[in-house]
Amino acid sequence: MDQIRIGMIGATGRGGIAKYWHKPDGKSIVVGGMDVYPERLAAFQKNVNPDAFITTDYRELLERKDIDAIAITSPDFCHEEHAIAALESGKHVFCEKPLAITVEGCDRILAAWKKSGKHLMSGFNMRYMNMFRTMREIVDSGVIGEIKAVWVRHFVGYGGYFYYHDWHGNSKNTTSLLLQKGSHDLDMIHWITGKYTKKVSAFGSLDFYGGDKPNDLVCNNCGEKETCTEASFDKLNQCAFREEIDVEDNNMIIMEMEGGIKASYLQCHFTPDYHRNYTFIGTEGRMENDELTNRVIVKTRRSNTMRQYADRIYEVKEAEGTHGGADPNICKDFVDMILYGKEPVATPLAGRMSVAVGCAATESIRSGGRVVEVAPIPDFMK
């Protein structure tokens, strides 16, 4: 096989990464798209491939013999159904994060993957961002020694727009935003330390969004739209203060990880600014990122060697493409995995473990902060 033929389940939104796969003269081509909204399928054909097969039923996409692989960029609560069906139909699968919205759902996907003999990749594009690749490289170099503490703060400045004007705001669709938004950060903690989380204790609440507004209220028809701080006139315009919203917007997790590492993760969706701040403290130094200046800073502690005089600042290079250049790289990795058997940076097990931590933390939050064990790796994955 010289070229991978790809079908998209979820033709717009995150499905916009199709442009990195559609290379008619290259190693991959996008030949099909599915979406429940016909107007989005029309946009998909216009922007990606005018000759692509389109459908509102994903099963029709899976039945096609001219499709080798499926990219799943549908809503979170659809991932399990779509991924298992695609694997069982004999397709390779790229599944956007989170892998599923329950641990059990993830394990069913992994079981179907093992049985299928096909390739599966989890859509953790942060593993492909220069900022975090730099941090992983610094840890691997040994300059900060053995990691003992991790602190992560996620300021989600567009939290209301991204998560409370549509389906994300209801827990039946997401479980919690610790899976949807936090899955990236939990995975980064795992990837950079090289360790998984064993147990968690967490606290969270719905401190800003939600309320008593009707579930069918949209911003365009609201009498408060001129003064509301969360008014949105985009396609995402359900009221952010409607009754059905029950997903916490302010979360804090404490984690005990393999190797005795202690980690914390803080996530707030009504902060005015947007950035991620990561701090890793080891036996020989501390590493911290600054997204505002695109730098990684390393401080070394007294060690009675020359190393203590060598604090360092890494100027992270800009990269072309969406999500800081990560999207074209993860799309290339998916193709190389199928064509050449390359081990992906973002593995299926990693996708499962971030969901497992998010689910455990959500359980802890909703049971008063008690300590919850993270569901261990299933035996068939060991």
Rank of each mutant, 00 (worst) to 15 (best):
S183I: 01
S183W: 02
D187C: 12
D187G: 15
I189V: 15
T193D: 06
K198D: 12
V200S: 07
V200R: 08
V200G: 03
S201N: 12
A202S: 09
A202E: 02
G204N: 05
D207E: 15
Y209N: 04
Y209S: 02
Y209D: 03
K213I: 05
K213Y: 14
K213R: 15
P214C: 02
L217P: 01
L217Q: 06
V218D: 02
V218M: 08
C219G: 00
G223A: 11
K225H: 13
E230T: 14
A231E: 05
S232G: 02
F233S: 01
N237W: 02
Q238E: 09
C239D: 09
A240D: 04
R242L: 08
R242E: 06
E244Q: 12
D246V: 12
E248G: 05
N251Q: 04
I253T: 02
E256T: 07
M257A: 08
E258L: 04
G259M: 05
G260T: 13
I261M: 09
K262I: 13
S264E: 03
Y265T: 05
Y265D: 11
C268F: 00
C268R: 13
F270K: 12
P272V: 05
D273V: 11
H275W: 12
N277H: 13
Y278P: 00
Y278C: 10
T283L: 06
E291Q: 15
L292S: 13
T293L: 10
V298N: 01
V298C: 04
K299H: 10
T300V: 15
R301Y: 14
R302V: 13
N304F: 13
